[in-house]
Write a protein that binds this DNA or RNA. Structure first.
Lengths: 212, 212
DNA sequence: GGAATAATTGATCACCTGATCAATAACCGT
DNA sequence: ACGGTTATTGATCAGGTGATCAATTATTCC
């Protein structure tokens, strides 16, 4: 019983570090990036603020890495969801539906916080750039694959990826601020995608109420 | 010399109130909404923080009204710029060029701050809603006028206005975070607008390098 | 079992935030 | 010229922020 975690207050560094990172993620997701404070993390984990400081070089980096982790996880989830799609058309369809779905609001809120905070927060600004590039690279890959398969016809998949992401972010931002969800406006993204990728109108349309 | 302002420290309430409001606007524009603090305003005006508190019921409301003033002024400026346009097509063209121009970054930054802060800031959230509606109403009017003139064909101008604003906001957000300007991506907005308004491709295109 | 190692704590620092209060000073009307 | 009105100040409060320090434990190694 030497490693029984229930009786001992002291934990292995790796475990505690994971605990802190997890708490940070939770706080960021349900209270926003600005609420990600030294004492908030400590309180959620159930330790002293000094301990969080001991595990983290600074709050600046914790905020940045927490944001990065959340967004990276989001990309991973979407990638996993797209994997079983047999055609690039269904993949793009799924991607649009997921990214504009009602479950996206929490992550979108984190993005908004990051955009705002990033202007006075060097480390976060860098991470925002990295994650935006990651998203672009991911979507760009989907488009390129579609072109290779002969499903899409795009001169500049990189540019189209940026455009689609910008539209999706804009719609989601509006949705989170003004309405509850952005699903109503999916049609816009579909139309743009069809136009930019040389698809016939309606090619991305049918599968509207397909998910859950 | 009884009303000489240079010798007297004391000022008329209306004048001081205007001074405070102006300082608040300046701070918000070049340091961001989160930098709009009691002492920052006081310092810029050259008075005590207590005086700012005396003129403002709370920082919460000052932030909200400052944001509202900035955005309302933006709408006013654009409206003024669109007034001389003889056709709705050139009006829409001008609007797109202006809204995605390089001078928009400061106001876009304020929007980002407001979207982020608005989630923990009741008064600001209300003002954000009001100003978004104002923008939508303004653009919607432009589109409706174009329809009445027979230049546009849109089934639902309100919806198209929301869509165009969402795209513009998304592009501007991306531009401010990742690149210096969103001008490169104007083509996207034009394409969408042309498609949604029943215009021939390229109808909004030509006047690309028209402004300084 | 005893000693070295390191996770954890509690206290504290310096700084920022918004807000309130009595006291002071300037202005205006008479 | 004087008195009332009020703009303005200085001080101060309560609370929050990130960060650092020695001291205290718990764990592990020998």
């Amino acid at each position: 019983m030497s490693t029984d975690p229930s009786a001992s207050r002291r934990k292995a560094p790796i475990e505690r570090a994971a605990e802190i990172a997890r708490a940070a993620r939770e706080i960021a997701l349900d209270e926003g990036l600005p609420a990600l404070t030294l004492r908030a993390v400590a309180s959620r984990v159930g330790v002293t603020s000094a301990l969080v400081s001991h595990y983290q070089p600074s709050m600046e980096t914790l905020v940045a890495t927490t944001f990065g982790t959340i967004v990276a996880a989001e990309i991973g989830e979407v990638a996993e969801e797209l994997a079983p799609c047999e055609t690039s058309v269904t993949a793009l369809q799924t991607l649009i539906n997921t990214l504009l779905g009602p479950d996206r609001s929490t992550v979108t809120a984190v993005w908004l916080d990051a955009w705002s905070l990033g202007r006075r927060h060097a480390a976060l600004a860098v991470e925002v750039g990295v994650q935006m590039d990651a998203w672009q690279a991911f979507l760009s890959d989907v488009l390129r694959t579609g072109c290779a398969r002969g499903e899409f016809r795009a001169i500049d998949p990189d540019a189209v990826a940026w455009q689609l992401l910008a539209i999706i972010d804009g719609l989601n931002a509006h949705a989170i601020v003004r309405y509850g969800h952005a699903q109503r406006l999916r049609g816009l993204v579909r139309t743009v995608a069809e136009h930019e990728l040389g698809l016939p109108p309606g090619a991305l349309g049918p599968d509207d109420d397909a998910e859950h």
